[in-house]
Design a protein around this nucleic acid. Sequence first.
DNA 1: CATCTGCCATACGTTTGCGATATGCGATGG
DNA 2: CCATCGCATATCGCAAACGTATGGCAGATG
Lengths: 331, 331
Amino acid sequence: MELRHLRYFVAVAEEGHITRAAARLGIAQPPLSQQIRALEADLGAKLFTRLPRGVALTAAGEAFLREAQPVLAGAERARRRAVDAARGAEGAIAIGVTTSAVLHPLIGGILRRFSQRYPGVVLTIREANAAELTEALERRTIAVAFLRAPVARPPGIVFRELASEPLMVVLPAFHPLARPHPGGIALAALRHERFVLTRRPDAPGMYQDVLQACRAAGFEPEVAAEVGRMLTNISLVAAGVGVSLVPASMRSIRLPGVRYRRLAGTDGPRAPLTVASADGAAEPVAANLLALAGSPHRRPRPALPASRTADPALPASRVAGVALATPGATA
Amino acid sequence: MELRHLRYFVAVAEEGHITRAAARLGIAQPPLSQQIRALEADLGAKLFTRLPRGVALTAAGEAFLREAQPVLAGAERARRRAVDAARGAEGAIAIGVTTSAVLHPLIGGILRRFSQRYPGVVLTIREANAAELTEALERRTIAVAFLRAPVARPPGIVFRELASEPLMVVLPAFHPLARPHPGGIALAALRHERFVLTRRPDAPGMYQDVLQACRAAGFEPEVAAEVGRMLTNISLVAAGVGVSLVPASMRSIRLPGVRYRRLAGTDGPRAPLTVASADGAAEPVAANLLALAGSPHRRPRPALPASRTADPALPASRVAGVALATPGATA
DNA sequence: CATCTGCCATACGTTTGCGATATGCGATGG
DNA sequence: CCATCGCATATCGCAAACGTATGGCAGATG
């Protein structure tokens, strides 16, 4: 028994007529008669009673028809599911983000566009620091990670910088420097401040970048606190522990008593935004997500003439409303 | 895409190994490789990643496997359902019975054995008089009918007498003839009684038989009441309206104040038990029921030596416990 | 480091069987 | 009674499925 037999049988059953069914199937009548008889012989049961004008289903034929139709539909569904899965339009993907990365509007846009374009994909998002995400990538617990600066570069994991943005000064509202500064705050003006810095255990990253920037400005910063997450920085600044330098998009965190101020100049320290993934044969779903991250939607391309038709794209500062599913376990 | 592709794919997916799957399928390895590749080409999606040792499912393969297995199971189920339906082991049948026929132990036994042997068949039983059942057979509303004496013989309907039994006298308990009669009651002893008879409008049947028997016994019976159903006979006898003659198996109706007495002699009037059905190409389910009715289980066959091993068959007088489903409408 | 082994892919010949064309047979309808 | 309709049968051609033989690549082995 093959699917062809089922297709032919259903056609004949629906037409009640072998010749018409053959026309509908695009084959001649004799082969169709043969296939029907072969099916009957295979089952050991007559499916049709031959009438003078056409054919009619027997009780066995009725029963077989009821089962054959779902089988054919199931076969088509199997094809569709496989194709969808191959396109990456169906399936699941687990990704990881750092708190500071997910606040960047680019990431929000990527996740929003991905979930819109591939509604059949279940997106699981885990939030952790860069070191944990890198390890999760190695274990294949997650397929893609969005983070700031890489803290390790294990083999088999590729990192690609999507964007970078300047660091901003975070100040308590009562701080003298918190008043508006048209040209931004010179880094050297912070030489007597106490700093709250995000600590990445023996690893490069923004911790080093900030230190180097301060040294370039001519002073060694005094560290008031070292924290594990950049969100904590801002809390401590709000508590008056000190000042800090955070990526510009962290402004989305609008704690009371906190002010964000630009740094003076354009050559100040910057925070990268990085996507990391296993190289090798990427799963289609992950490939789609990476493709979306690789072609930043409506990123201004200076070389091109501005002839592209503007569309009602979301303002870049808005964080997209992607549903975040946080799985319980880490392993 | 054919079922063969699904069978092959599932085997390879389950084995994780083309060569082993080929052995399991009883074919050589190259054709299996070809068929898998043909399936992949047909779907336009790779289903396996070729590993140095065996193969592994891709995401598309995983999705396809989840769908392919139910499809194969569904195909096998379709085969089974068709075969069962052809055997008459599955489906539905509507039959009709008269009240007096269904009380006969033979009918009870037939229905009990049928529902035991073919538990997959939904049995619908309708109760009506012989004329209505005959018409229902013509309309194909029912497939088989069990009744007493045929009242009409339309073309295309075949009647077969299954058995016959003597009529018995039904008397009120206070009637002088109700006391035990070792040799039975002679019909002539009823010459002065008033009779309750089952009327079949302008048709042959037991009504005529009773009249003829009385005339043969030398008297014209005085009719006290004519009723439509034999069950009503007994009610009227219990009410003291008169006496009646009913088939012996009607003794199952044990109304208070009613006594059943045998008729004297062996050549008295008898009530047949008849099965009626459409001839032509009988549906398998109906054919099975007729076959069961045609080979009366454990009917004593006088010509054979009595060497058959007795089994704990039910006493012949017991009416089997078949669930009766009475459909609402007649049409 | 060279060799061997295991496994999948490719090549090619054989055969099965599907489909097309031509025709026969039975029943129906005018 | 003849024409028509519809399924069955016969025969042929060809595509495709299967088998045998062989190549190629990557681990495993000594």
